[in-house]
Design a binder for these strands. Structure first.
Lengths: 223, 223
DNA sequence: TATAAAACTTTCTAAGAGACAGTTTATATT
DNA sequence: AATATAAACTGTCTCTTAGAAAGTTTTATA
């Protein structure tokens, strides 16, 4: 059995290398040659596997979004209540494995590609929709139906805002601070009763523990 | 009296042209030649007034941030209470003159420049700090002191999030929707009493009217 | 082992960033 | 007004980059 085609392995290596290049040299400083250099191949190989530079950057963009997806699925597997699934979403976005200098910075750098790349737009739109849908699904359990959509939307937008700010300044972002901001906003937006607040705190603690294991760097090596 | 030096006029023309180019061709598609073409001069002129491409993009970035500043000052002039000044901040960020397809898209495109350009980082950091300080100053009047900083920070982050989402998809953003989201979040975060809510509504209405005049496209031609 | 397809390399071209030398235009000084 | 000086601008040259194309090697499969 052939595990994965050479092409798919190369594409993965190359998009990883491109990610590296974007971190090191910025979007404008990322050239096909540098990407090849990091991957240990010639520029020609890069263009053999990606039709042009846009296609390569698109793959990097897709990759960084899929990291988020993977981490969410891992946490979902161990979340057993709406509150816990809600916090799984939060920790998927703001655990060290995902919410770190490199990834945030790369994401912000790649944002510039989106307005003129309809494939990136689709990826990003799908991502926003997925987060909103996930949040809505859990919010329904502790918020009146007619406010669910609005709150889910706002929390999604807030997540983007936190990410952007983290990416802009090329410093290590503070996971706990981000999670605090998310919690703070949530509790006010859903007007959580003190009983509900306890559930949230408990769920956050549990998912935090799970995230520490399930999203540990050793276990988190994407294909 | 010499109104403005030739250089300063040229720099302004050129950064305006560069802004145009970023909109039309994206960050990666923006070349010095195209910028010159839009401005009706040769590439050499561009490099005469800006030491390199980064310096040019920096100027565009600064420009789009200063638009925000100008619109805020205009509205402040007519705001007469904390509530009104609070809403002046909101309308400075989300009036058609500022919050439109072109500006949002350019802003997002230029974000990619920030992580590797310390001057852009300084501009952006100053901007964040200013918005936070402005918000804090007004929030103090209808929120207990020990929550002011946190809420100001969150609202600033939310504004960034709304902007990013608007810039990503190259469509005309919806000003009223953005303002509704901002209002919605504010009212919950400050736990506004029904009396306070009335003040907010009234202030929003008033500033809306003022913005329609003071920020009308005819009157808003930045230097 | 023959054949095709996929992976990879090398070479070439057009376009871009930016340096530099030289020319023109504006400003200030006597 | 005449001259000096600085600023604005132009054209040319070099080096780097994206990407196309044509050719070579490797791998898979019948």
């Amino acid at each position: 059995m052939q595990a994965r085609s050479i092409s798919s392995i190369r594409r993965s290596e190359l998009s990883q290398a491109a990610f590296e290049a974007v971190i090191r040299y910025g979007l404008r400083g990322t050239t096909l040659e540098k990407v090849g250099e990091i991957a240990g191949v010639s520029k020609g190989v890069v263009l053999h596997h990606f039709k042009d530079k846009s296609a390569l950057l698109e793959a990097v963009f897709r990759r960084s979004n899929s990291l988020l997806n993977i981490s969410l699925l891992r946490l979902y597997r161990h979340a057993e209540s709406p509150y816990e699934r809600f916090w799984a979403i939060a920790y998927a976005n703001f655990s060290e494995t995902i919410y770190n200098r490199e990834v945030c910075q790369a994401w912000v750098s790649l944002l510039a590609e989106v307005p003129h790349n309809s494939m990136c737009q689709r990826v990003q739109a799908a991502n926003n929709a997925r987060i909103k849908s996930n949040l809505s699904h859990e919010l329904r359990h502790f918020l009146v139906e007619n406010r669910v959509s609005e709150v889910a939307n706002l929390l999604g937008t807030l997540i983007d805002g936190i990410w952007v700010r983290a990416g802009l300044f090329a410093i290590t972002p503070d996971c706990d601070k981000a999670l605090d901001e998310f919690e703070f906003t949530t509790l006010y937006l859903v007007e959580a009763s003190s009983e509900q607040q306890k559930y949230h705190k408990a769920a956050r603690e549990k998912i935090k523990t799970i995230a520490k294991i399930a999203l540990s760097p050793e276990l988190f090596q994407p294909k």
